[in-house]
Amino acid sequence: MAAPTLRRGTCGVVLAALLGTGLAACGDSGEIKKPDLVEGAEAGGKLTIGISYDEPGVGFKDGDDYSGFDVDTATYVAEALGVDDDDITWVRADPADREELLTSGQADLVVATYSITDERKQQVDFAGPYFVAHQDLLIRRNDTEITGPKTLHDRVLCSVTGTTSSEYVREHYKGDITLKEYPRYSACVEALLDGKVDAVTTDDLILAGYASEDRYRGKLKVVGDGFTDERYGIGVRKGDTALVAKVDAALKQYIDDGSWRAALDESVGGSGYDLPDPPTPGTA
Rank of each mutant, 00 (worst) to 15 (best):
P4I: 04
T5M: 07
T5P: 00
T5D: 06
T5Q: 14
R7V: 10
G9T: 09
G12V: 11
G12L: 11
V13W: 11
A17C: 10
A17W: 06
A17G: 11
A17Q: 12
A17V: 06
T21C: 04
G22S: 14
C26P: 03
G27F: 01
S29C: 10
E31Y: 03
I32G: 02
K33W: 03
K34Q: 13
P35Q: 09
L37T: 06
E39M: 07
E42P: 00
A43G: 11
G45K: 13
K46E: 15
K46N: 11
T48H: 07
I51Y: 06
G59F: 06
D64K: 13
F69Y: 14
A74D: 01
E79L: 03
L81N: 02
D85L: 05
A93L: 09
D94I: 11
D94S: 10
P95C: 05
A96I: 07
D97T: 13
E99H: 06
E99D: 12
L101T: 09
L102G: 08
L102F: 08
S104D: 11
Q106F: 02
A107C: 09
D108L: 06
L109W: 10
V111S: 10
I116L: 11
D118L: 13
D118Y: 09
E119A: 15
Q122K: 15
P129W: 08
Q135M: 12
R141I: 15
E145P: 00
E145C: 00
I146F: 06
I146K: 06
T151I: 04
L152P: 01
T163F: 07
S165W: 00
E167I: 03
Y168Q: 03
E171D: 15
H172Y: 09
K174R: 14
K180V: 15
Y182K: 13
R184H: 09
R184E: 12
Y185S: 03
C188W: 09
L192R: 03
L192K: 03
L192E: 02
G195T: 08
G195V: 11
A199R: 01
V200P: 00
D203Y: 04
D203L: 10
D203A: 13
D204A: 14
L207A: 04
Y210D: 00
A211F: 05
A211M: 04
A211I: 02
E213W: 11
D214M: 05
G218M: 10
V222D: 01
V222Q: 15
G224T: 04
G226F: 06
F227E: 01
E230P: 00
E230G: 00
R231D: 07
Y232G: 00
Y232L: 12
G233W: 08
I234D: 00
G235F: 12
R237V: 14
G239H: 05
L243V: 04
V244P: 00
V244N: 03
K246F: 02
A249F: 05
L251W: 11
Y254R: 04
Y254S: 05
W260A: 02
R261L: 14
A262N: 07
L264E: 04
L264H: 07
G269F: 09
P276C: 06
D277L: 12
P278L: 13
P279L: 08
P279Y: 03
P279I: 09
G282M: 10
